[in-house]
Simulated scan of single mutants.
Amino acid sequence: MDTDDLRNEVLSCGRRARVAARALAPMSTERKNAGLLAMADQLCASANTILQANSKDVEKATTDQLSLPIIDRLKLDGKRIQAMADDIRQVAALEDPVGKVIVEWIRPNGLHISKVRVPIGVIGIIYESRPNVTSDAAVLCTKTGNAVILRGGSESIRSNIAIAEALRAGAVSAGLPEDSILMIPKTDRDAVRHMAGMDQYIDLIVPRGGRALIETVVNYARMPVIKHYVGLCIAYVDREADLDMAVRIVVNAKTQRPGVCNAIETVLVHRQIAAPFFKKIAPLLAGKKVEIRADPDSLRHLSALNYQSLHSAREEDWTTEYLDLILAART
């Protein structure tokens, strides 16, 4: 797509979202919750359409030889769609933050001042891979009275569009503005730059993904940014830990879905229980085909157990988010 055409399309989304935000902000809690419940129902009703779109994304990801954990993050099934719908219903049941008085006081001259939670306006959210983020982001924004412009990753573009269309249809059926949920349907990277520069329409932008994405958004953003940065999930096994429980937790946290952001990347083990811990966990990790990158002490314990997929850890292994069947081990 020509860059001017792309920019105009993104600007059009911004204008539409601004109009929708003004209509959504004053809506009652009851109306917003009804919209959320309708979204959940429509998501389930559109399951076949969503799964067909998702199968095309998965097929392309497989052809492009993306890693198995990344494909797992991308893949949807009936159970995952039902879980998304259940999550929407849980958000509907939450207390509405809009209108909540945070603090209030009276000045000596009798002036009453209060600080009250209000919608932000239009929120831009840019994310990668997981299509369920489309639902999570749209639903949280709706609950808080904000319009949202979504831009997902190229790997999940068909899934994202199908999910967003289902949510929009549900919202409209309950009387919410259709354009309170908008999806940028293009995967051009320039779309990120155009969104980040659109401060006349977007009040806040949230990048959710890898370092390159976050740095791009921060460099171009002309509005406030809420971002995370480098972070890892680490499991610590203390000397007083129940080792059987610790083994179950570590194996599950690493291998159940290694491509999600709450999978652990490092296990830190107290030296006093390192030998028995590694003896218990090594065969289980080996059975799951987990590669271990170990510090000298852990390497010594695992080598003695003849662990095959074993390497000496490098300094960067302690700060790497693998999103794969790789585990850094340190004693």
Rank of each mutant, 00 (worst) to 15 (best):
Leu6Met: 14
Leu6Arg: 14
Asn8Gly: 14
Asn8Ser: 15
Asn8Met: 14
Glu9Asp: 11
Glu9Trp: 15
Glu9His: 14
Glu9Lys: 07
Val10Phe: 11
Leu11Glu: 07
Cys13Lys: 14
Cys13Pro: 09
Gly14Asn: 11
Arg15His: 07
Arg15Gln: 12
Arg15Tyr: 12
Arg16Gly: 07
Arg16Asn: 08
Ala17Val: 00
Val19Lys: 03
Val19Ala: 09
Ala20Ile: 01
Leu24Glu: 03
Leu24Tyr: 02
Pro26Glu: 05
Ser28Asp: 02
Thr29Phe: 00
Thr29Trp: 00
Glu30Gly: 08
Asn33Cys: 06
Asn33Gln: 13
Ala34Val: 08
Gly35Gln: 05
Leu36Ala: 08
Leu37Tyr: 15
Leu37Ile: 04
Ala38Glu: 06
Met39Asn: 08
Met39Gly: 09
Ala40Cys: 08
Ala40Ile: 03
Asp41Val: 08
Gln42Cys: 12
Leu43Met: 05
Cys44Pro: 02
Cys44Gln: 13
Cys44Lys: 04
Ala45Asn: 12
Ser46Cys: 10
Ala47Pro: 00
Thr49Leu: 11
Ile50Asp: 01
Leu51Asp: 01
Gln52Ser: 14
Ala53Asn: 07
Ala53Arg: 06
Asn54Lys: 05
Ser55Gly: 11
Val58Glu: 14
Glu59Gly: 12
Glu59Pro: 07
Lys60Leu: 03
Lys60Ser: 05
Lys60Pro: 07
Lys60Ile: 04
Thr62Phe: 13
Asp64Gln: 11
Asp64Phe: 01
Gln65Met: 15
Leu66Thr: 05
Leu66Val: 07
Ser67Cys: 11
Leu68His: 15
Pro69Asp: 11
Pro69Gly: 13
Pro69Met: 10
Ile70Phe: 12
Ile71Glu: 12
Ile71Asp: 13
Leu74Phe: 12
Lys75Asn: 02
Asp77Trp: 07
Asp77Leu: 10
Asp77Tyr: 06
Gly78Ser: 11
Arg80Phe: 02
Ile81Glu: 01
Ile81Met: 08
Gln82Asp: 09
Ala83Trp: 00
Ala83Ile: 01
Ala83Arg: 08
Ala83Glu: 02
Met84Gly: 00
Met84Tyr: 11
Ala85Met: 06
Asp86Ser: 08
Ile88Val: 14
Val91Asn: 05
Ala93Phe: 09
Leu94Pro: 04
Asp96Arg: 03
Pro97Thr: 10
Val98Ser: 07
Val98Phe: 00
